[in-house]
Amino acid sequence: MLSCKEIGALLSQGIDRKLSLREKWQLKFHLFICKTCSCYDKQLQFIARSAHRLMQPEKDNQGIPPLSHEAEMRINSAIKQRLGKKENKNE
């Protein structure tokens, strides 16, 4: 039977790659009898879901600050400047 240490590594890898059938069974068996590892498993899954949610561009996350007013003005003027150049070229 695999140790908690080995299971901990497998649980993390399960997020990054497809585990083999054998590894899956080893996990299942261990998690069935080990409360601590099942607890760790749930926490890792939660962290993965949170990370996924945080990085979604569609989700305008309230926890992350918006573009500052200064940056907004600076970027806007950079765009306008570039637009102006283009128009001059076209004329």
């Binding site: 573009l67 970027i75 950079a78 765009i79």
Partner: peptide, 30 residues
């Protein structure tokens, strides 16, 4: 001319999460 107002925040938040540096994230957006 309306891009920053429309999409600036979404792009900035996306960039900030990945760059973890406000100035760099602003530069990326620009």
């Amino acid at each position: 001319a309306t891009w920053v107002a429309q999409h600036g925040d979404a792009l900035f938040r996306y960039a900030l999460m990945k760059m973890r540096d406000e100035t760099q994230a602003e530069d990326m957006v620009q």
